[in-house]
């Protein structure tokens, strides 16, 4: 199935959870927030969130700012 991860298209051969996808791309998830289809997903729900075809996943992190 095809998903979008921060505007990049990715192909997955098997169903995957949000937690697994994040682990694969960002093993250190300290200071990260995630939205699926523009809805923020609480960290406690990452494991049980099964990603669906065409889902748009956005990862955010903290940067310096005023």
């Amino acid at each position: 199935m095809q998903l979008t991860l921060n505007d990049h298209s990715i192909q997955l051969s098997a169903p995957v959870t949000l937690a697994a996808l994040i682990r694969q791309h960002y093993p250190d998830n300290n200071g990260i927030a995630v939205a699926v289809n523009q809805q923020v997903v609480n960290k406690s729900l990452w494991e049980q969130t099964e990603l669906q075809p065409e889902d748009r996943i956005s990862l955010f992190t903290v940067v310096a700012g005023g």
Binding site: N6, N30, A33, L59, F60, A64
Partner: peptide, 19 residues
């Protein structure tokens, strides 16, 4: 202290600002 948020750049590492 204030901080901002941004979308992660998948092709770039990120600086550890928080620790």
């Amino acid at each position: 202290v204030t901080l901002a948020l941004k979308r992660l750049d998948l092709h770039q590492g990120r600086d550890d600002l928080l620790s």
